[in-house]
């Protein structure tokens, strides 16, 4: 599977996004602001996660007309979200020529048992994960890129940190295991043995892993990169803040130069108000988007 030509093209595009920032946008004008700020891709959405959270109801794939307007507005890759398990939405997104599909817990799941068989598509998929077992199950289904789930639409980084640390810790742990321990380890985390063996041998996932869910400031981006993220998704954090173009540029700079703290201090000056944010402990279990998907 990992040597397949189509898979090479899928993971290849994920490789090209490394070190960059992917921004949620809800119209052509925001998409242009994102591109001008140096975003490596945009995520076309009708509502950003903070509004989905506030308004409730069933969240679905975006209107194709909106997606087309955003595709026309920018030259960088355009991503879009489909519901977990909703392969027909994914087929529609593929027909629209979307560059990357996010099978996302931010939308209301369409299937509470199965995720999409992503091998059937020529377009690469990104999926969220909270731990290594979840990450490897998504890769087994054909995901070419992973991201932490975090807790979208909260402007609170705590869950993304938890998920990134969990994945990194479990990767390190696997490298210390003996070969005789791998079968049971794979069984316990619910992941295919072949992928567990890959992680032990290489000390990393076979696909890139990005951060998402709660990134609101340049320092948040630096934190996630230092914890091992290879790029950053910013959802509500930019267009829910007071000065989106300036904040977008600052987060792009902080992601590239994530170890240059003088520079991060400089770009963080005078950004005005970030998004308001939500304390995770104020959310009930049902309100947490990260618990969607398994």
């Amino acid at each position: 599977m990992l040597e397949d030509k189509d898979y090479k093209l899928k993971v290849g595009l994920a490789e090209m996004l490394k070190g960059g920032v992917i921004m949620d946008v809800t119209n052509a004008e925001q998409a242009k602001i994102a591109e001008d700020a140096g975003a490596v891709a945009v995520m076309a959405l009708e509502r950003i996660p903070a509004d989905i959270r506030a308004q409730g109801g069933v969240a679905r794939m975006s209107d194709p007309q909106l997606i087309k307007e955003i595709q026309k507005a920018v030259s960088i890759p355009v991503m879009a979200k489909c519901r977990i398990g909703h392969f027909a939405e994914a087929q529609v997104l593929e027909a629209l020529g979307i560059d990357f599909i996010d099978e996302s817990e931010v939308l209301t799941p369409a299937d509470e048992e199965y995720h999409i068989d992503k091998h059937k598509f020529k377009i690469p998929f990104v999926c969220g994960c909270r731990n290594l077992g979840e990450a490897l199950r998504r890769i087994a289904e054909g995901a070419a890129l992973l991201r932490t789930k975090g807790e979208a639409g909260t402007g609170n980084i705590v869950e993304a940190v938890r998920h990134m640390r969990a994945v990194q810790r479990e990767i390190k742990h696997i490298t210390t295991l003996g070969d005789e321990e791998l079968v049971i380890y794979a069984k316990n985390i619910g992941a295919p043995l072949e992928l567990v063996k890959y992680v032990k041998e290489h000390g990393k996932l076979p696909v890139p892993n990005f951060a998402a869910g709660g990134i609101a400031t340049p320092a948040d981006a630096s934190l996630m990169m230092q914890l091992g993220a290879e790029a950053v998704f910013v959802g509500s954090g930019i267009f829910k803040s007071e000065d989106p173009p300036k904040r977008a540029r600052a987060i792009v700079m902080a992601t590239t130069h994530y170890m240059d703290f003088d520079l991060i201090a400089r770009v963080s000056e005078g950004l005005r108000e970030p998004m308001r944010g939500i304390d995770i402990h104020e959310l009930s279990e049902e309100e947490k988007l990260a618990t969607r998907g398994w």
Binding site: L17, G38, S75, V252, M253
Partner: peptide, 30 residues
């Protein structure tokens, strides 16, 4: 290479794949 001073003492430079709009923006900023 992330800053101009990183070019000192190099025999050559590789510019990778990625997004060219992002490259030009970041090259100029730094």
């Amino acid at each position: 290479v992330r800053k101009p001073e990183h070019l000192t003492g190099l025999m050559g430079l590789i510019m990778p794949g990625g997004e060219s709009t992002t490259f030009v923006k970041l090259l100029k900023e730094i």
